[in-house]
Amino acid sequence: MSTPPLLELHDVTVAYHGRPVLWHVDLAVESPCLYGIIGPNGAGKSTLVKAALGIVPLADGWVKFFGEPLDRVRGRVGYVPQRESVDWDFPVRAIDVVLMGTYHRLGWMRRVGRAERELAAACLDRVGMADFATRQIGRLSGGQQQRVFLARALAQQAEIYFLDEPLAGVDAQSQQQIFRVLSELRDEGKLVLIVHHDLRTAASWFDRVALVDMRLVAAGPTEEVLSRENLARTYSGHLEVLDELGRAVEAGRRTP
């Protein structure tokens, strides 16, 4: 028997208030890599991730991780939500946010102990945020907040990571640091799926990509998928930006 894919989506359909926003997505990822999920605004990229993680209900289809339903392997799947999704005035410090990554393994009612604190500190250090451990999260820059979110996902010690727009509105230093950690994860044999909107960087960063526009347009190795034709189909409602995108992709290929 062959090993099941790390991640498999079959006929995934999602509807909000009876209106479908994602249609019949079939996708299988066999091996560890940096996987970009790319498409225009409102294409359902975040919804696809949320559907895979069981945060929004599926109208149809199923999702499997390591050949099993998510509920049996939650501890092996990590998640970095969009930065806009939380209240940054919440009374937690950077280290407290990272500790949340250990809660699942702790389980109900058990308190954070020394092992969790050490793990959280190490994860903060890995994203270059050790000096900010006791800073209230609202008093960090956007890039620093994103790195804290990444550290929390690292503390989950998962094998598959989902990141929703981890590089949006992030300063260059943070962007570099985040990308370095994600590459390391890939090299350690983890699958890293990244929702991303910037085509210029997509071509050079990702090993594989999926183009999404309310349905799956194309998926596979970056070189093959990011063709002019596929992009035209994905961004068909956005004709005015097509030429610009095409040039950007070409430029991205020349400077990997």
């Binding site: 939380v86 937690v92 949340m100 809660y103 109900w108 009612m109 954070v112």
Partner: peptide
């Protein structure tokens, strides 16, 4: 007092909490 941890993660980041299985 018994469920501070659970209440905190759900209040701060419900999406993350849901993905982590809470």
């Amino acid at each position: 007092a018994a469920f501070v941890k659970e209440a905190t993660v759900v209040s701060f980041d419900p999406g993350f909490a849901a993905a982590a299985g809470w």
